[in-house]
Computed example of a mutant assay.
Amino acid sequence: MKITSIIAIYALFWVMTAFLLLPFGVKTHDEAGVAKIPGQADSAPANFRPGKLALRATLIATALTALYVANYLNGWITAADIVLFTPPPELERPAG
């Protein structure tokens, strides 16, 4: 596997993880008991910390990428192992 492929997979895992982590640990101003600024949306976060989010996403994406590369090199799970549906029986042709 090329290093550019690993970087691209890491970037995909990082973005996916960051979006999945966005709603966790965030409170609105009403939940946190903080006064709102006039014109502010009721759903605006009061304690959004992008640095903490980026750190968590980095750690999780690093672990997921390491697992992905290890699986690629060792072949623990292949496409043949993931069968969602059984293949239909083959159609038999009549003799003659």
Rank of each mutant, 00 (worst) to 15 (best):
N71V: 01
Y72L: 05
L21S: 02
L22K: 05
W76Y: 15
F85S: 08
L22A: 02
V69N: 02
P88K: 10
P45Y: 08
I60Q: 02
K52Y: 11
L91D: 06
D42W: 10
V26I: 13
V69I: 08
Y72N: 03
T28D: 04
G33Q: 05
A66L: 15
P89E: 06
V83I: 11
T62W: 03
V34Q: 13
A18C: 08
P23F: 10
A18D: 04
G25A: 13
Y68H: 07
Y72A: 06
L21A: 13
L21T: 00
H29D: 01
L55A: 14
I37A: 13
A35G: 03
E90C: 08
E92Y: 11
P94S: 06
P94G: 02
I60E: 00
P94D: 07
P38G: 07
G33A: 04
L22I: 15
T65P: 01
P88M: 08
S43V: 07
Q40D: 09
T17S: 05
A63T: 08
M16I: 12
D42Y: 07
F85G: 01
I77N: 10
V15R: 07
P88S: 13
P38A: 14
A35N: 10
K27M: 15
K52W: 06
L22T: 12
K52Q: 10
V15M: 13
I77T: 13
E92N: 11
T78K: 13
P87S: 12
P88W: 05
F48M: 11
F85C: 00
D30T: 13
P87T: 10
G25H: 14
R56G: 05
I77Q: 10
A66Q: 03
T17D: 03
I37P: 00
F19W: 15
W76H: 10
A70I: 10
N71C: 04
T58W: 03
A35Y: 06
E90W: 07
T17W: 00
A80E: 12
A35P: 12
V26D: 02
Y68G: 05
P38Q: 10
I37S: 09
I60R: 01
P23Y: 14
A54H: 12
S43R: 11
L20W: 14
Q40Y: 07
G33Y: 03
A63P: 02
A32N: 06
L55N: 07
A80Y: 04
S43C: 00
P23M: 12
D42K: 14
K36P: 01
L64R: 02
A54D: 02
G39Q: 04
T58P: 01
F19L: 15
G33D: 06
Y68S: 05
P94V: 01
L21Q: 01
R93K: 15
L53A: 05
A46I: 06
T86F: 05
G25M: 11
V26Y: 03
K27S: 12
A79V: 11
A44E: 15
